[in-house]
């Protein structure tokens, strides 16, 4: 078991390192001079300052080092939580992120919770309802939800709930009311994705012979659904929880921009537009860290929820020969 956990943690760190390195490589290859951007942000022209001053500035930002040197500085900094200075805002990247990450975590956390509840409820209903037209409608609903562009949903919500009915504020991040529409916008997509996987999983589970056994016992339909199908159907869907949370984080870029919320997503959008390399690198690394952590947690929880895995790990493994020859 310890070996399993250690392996998973190492794997997660590896993915994180790869994400950091890849982002660094892409940003370094961009055909623009970070120094020029930096000066432009300060309202200066590159020709307006002396070569000596330029060299000093480059040294200050570490831009005079070789690519490996810069990579090493950034990587060792990132490991210690130091992502350097923002090129455009003249503030440490760490401060920028610290000021915003709470809002984004709140937004994505709420969105994930809502979409899990919604997705599960929809899948449960779609497979439980017996009246065919409604069943068909509920089964097709997720496909619709997953195909609406988020900016469209966001604009519709603003138009109706905010401008027409005045229920929720169209922008800002003060109070729970400001959270409702952004969370709704993200959840439409993520709960649809979850529901699609869960419906498929429920359908497969309900076709299993042990469901027949349960029905033959004389249990009611709802007891069969709740006590025998639900857990077995939800297990495989856990593996896409990481994906759902990843989707929520990326959605926050669009959602925070549209609803003008102060968060990591909007910071990322602004940083990309102004090619603020240290900020982009930091945001990508943090997003990757969230994704990797969630997946790690799911991997570690899975054996606790599925007795078949929990009991088998570290104990007698089935000899390869007893697994069907057909596997070969």
């Amino acid at each position: 078991m310890t070996r399993y956990i250690l392996g998973r943690v190492l794997q997660a760190l590896g993915v994180l390192w790869a994400a950091f390195t890849l982002t660094f490589a892409i940003l370094y290859l961009l055909p623009s001079d970070p120094m020029e951007l930096q000066l432009a942000a300060a309202g200066l022209q590159a020709d307006g300052i002396s070569p000596q001053q330029l060299a000093d500035l480059k040294h200050q930002y570490g831009l005079d080092q070789s690519i490996w040197g810069q990579y090493w500085t950034r990587l060792s900094g990132a490991v210690h939580g130091d992502f350097g200075m923002s090129l455009t805002q003249n503030l440490p990247v760490r401060d920028l992120i610290q000021a915003r990450i709470g809002q984004t975590l709140l937004l994505t956390g709420c969105a994930c919770t809502v979409s899990m509840v919604l997705g599960l409820a929809l899948a449960y209903l779609a497979t439980f309802v017996r009246w065919n037209p409604l069943r068909l409608f509920l089964t097709r609903l997720p496909a619709l939800g997953a195909s609406f562009p988020q900016f469209f949903i966001a604009l519709m919500l603003i138009q109706f709930l905010s401008f027409k009915l005045g229920l929720f504020p169209a922008m800002g991040n003060t109070g729970w009311k400001s959270l409702v529409m952004p969370v709704a916008t993200i959840s439409v997509l993520t709960s649809s994705v979850l529901a699609q996987v869960l419906i498929k999983s429920f359908d497969d589970t309900l076709r299993q012979p042990y469901i027949v056994t349960a029905r033959a016992k004389g249990l009611s339909r709802s007891a069969v659904h709740l006590k025998h199908a639900l857990r077995n159907a939800a297990l495989p869907a856990m593996t896409i929880l990481g994906l759902v949370i990843g989707l929520s984080v990326t959605s926050s870029i669009i959602v925070e921009t549209i609803y003008t919320r102060v968060g990591i997503g909007r910071l990322a959008q602004e940083a990309v537009l102004s090619q603020d390399v240290p900020v982009v690198l930091a945001v990508v690394t943090i997003a990757a860290a969230i994704f990797v952590t969630v997946n790690l947690i799911v991997d570690l929880l899975y054996p606790l929820l599925d007795p078949r895995i929990a009991r088998n790990r570290g104990r007698v493994r089935v000899p390869a020969a007893q697994i069907e020859v057909s596997a070969a």
Binding site: Q208, P209, Y210, V212, T213, A214, A216, K227, H228, R231, N232, L235, D306, P307, R308
Partner: peptide, 12 residues
């Protein structure tokens, strides 16, 4: 039922 290997709920 026919198949004892799949006739029981694996998580109960």
């Amino acid at each position: 039922p026919q198949d004892p290997m799949t006739g029981l709920n694996p998580t109960k």
